[in-house]
Design a protein around this nucleic acid. Structure first.
Lengths: 193, 193
DNA sequence: ACCATTCTAAAACGTGCATTCTAATTGCCA
DNA sequence: TGGCAATTAGAATGCACGTTTTAGAATGGT
């Protein structure tokens, strides 16, 4: 180690998330990311081997943030609270939320997938989170997890709350208070397991 | 009229939908569309003035197909049946469904919007469909449409069913029969208005 | 049969982007 | 103090794509 870096990996990751959140995947060109950080284009390549790696790192970071907020509640067997916890998380991390919840990974990585280490890291994150999810669903039923039960639970805990948020994330601005009510009512009228 | 066209507008529109459905917006390059139809690249430009126009025409066609299937049920005041009707429509038009329901328009048009005539046509379609939607919601309440009521109804009729379909549309293959059950149960437990 | 018009056909152009290259700078350690 | 590796810096490269151009073929009315 000899020279202090003026820009950190996180600087580039944050810039990437912001650009995608504001203008979609195509807005996150390497030049745009560099310009946003105030660095020359080439500097990105000292930390990330390609654009796919850059986007992949940003994706993993956002996903880790999201799952860290929900996993404890799932492991505690409180799916309703996990569903509701998406709201404060999205309010606190608007940039991450728009990046993660408004864009399918397939749209980010359709051309070239991230390099193997990043994919492996994401797989670990996903498996760990999936463990928390399955444990939560299992406490409700008798232990036998049918595909339908898992699909129901996934819808109630993740997809429905995200669908409720999506229009407001797209429009920008604050998430309305009635989002909480809708999620609570949904779980009241359509319980898990 | 003098020479018969070997390729129709619809040929290009179908190819565009198929490519986006299979590989995302970036897969629908002008060359890929032409190759799929078996035509030279330049031929597309005899019918569509630009790539934005090509994608816009495909979007309008898919949206028209979707709304044609649902609008009558909304106008008849049957929101539950409209929500359920998304399933047979998606089964019958898998390509259109993947194209329309799996990709935000913002991701397709982020670089350049379609030309004015296409935007105007889409606006007409949207307004007409929105009329059917509002009429349907109004029959339930007392006529005063609060933002929360509209958001609830939009979620129950469109966003929730689509969220239920999304994982299966992504994976490909047939939509499971329990999707019907989930939508019915959702509307039973969380009625509109 | 001829001509205007609409199309096919394929190559060529220009642009914007990811990526690479070369040089100059920085700060720690011997 | 001098050397060295990591970094900044920004220009250069090459490629893929949207679009344009140019040329030729087909059709139906006259």
């Amino acid at each position: 180690m000899v020279r202090m870096a003026r820009f950190s990996e996180d600087d580039f990751i944050e810039a990437t998330m912001a650009l995608v959140a504001e203008g979609g995947p195509a807005a996150a060109t390497m030049q745009a990311i560099a310009r946003r950080v105030g660095a020359p284009t080439g500097s990105i390549y000292h930390r990330f081997e390609s654009r796919a790696a850059m986007l992949g790192a940003a994706w993993n970071a956002a996903y880790a943030s999201f799952t860290a907020a929900l996993a404890p509640l799932l492991r505690a067997g409180r799916p309703r609270d996990a569903a509701l916890a998406i709201l404060p998380w999205a309010r606190e991390h608007e940039r991450r939320a728009r990046f993660l919840l408004l864009h399918e990974p397939i749209a980010l990585f359709e051309d070239t997938p991230p390099p193997a280490p990043l994919r492996a890291e994401l797989e670990r994150l996903e498996e760990s989170f999936d463990g928390a999810f399955r444990a939560c669903v299992a406490t409700r039923g008798d232990g036998a997890l049918r595909e339908e039960d898992l699909a129901r639970a996934k819808f109630l805990i993740f997809d429905a709350p995200i669908a409720i948020l999506r229009p407001h994330l797209m429009r920008g601005g604050p998430l309305p208070p009635f989002a909480e009510r809708m999620i609570a009512e949904l779980h009241a009228g359509m319980p898990i397991g």
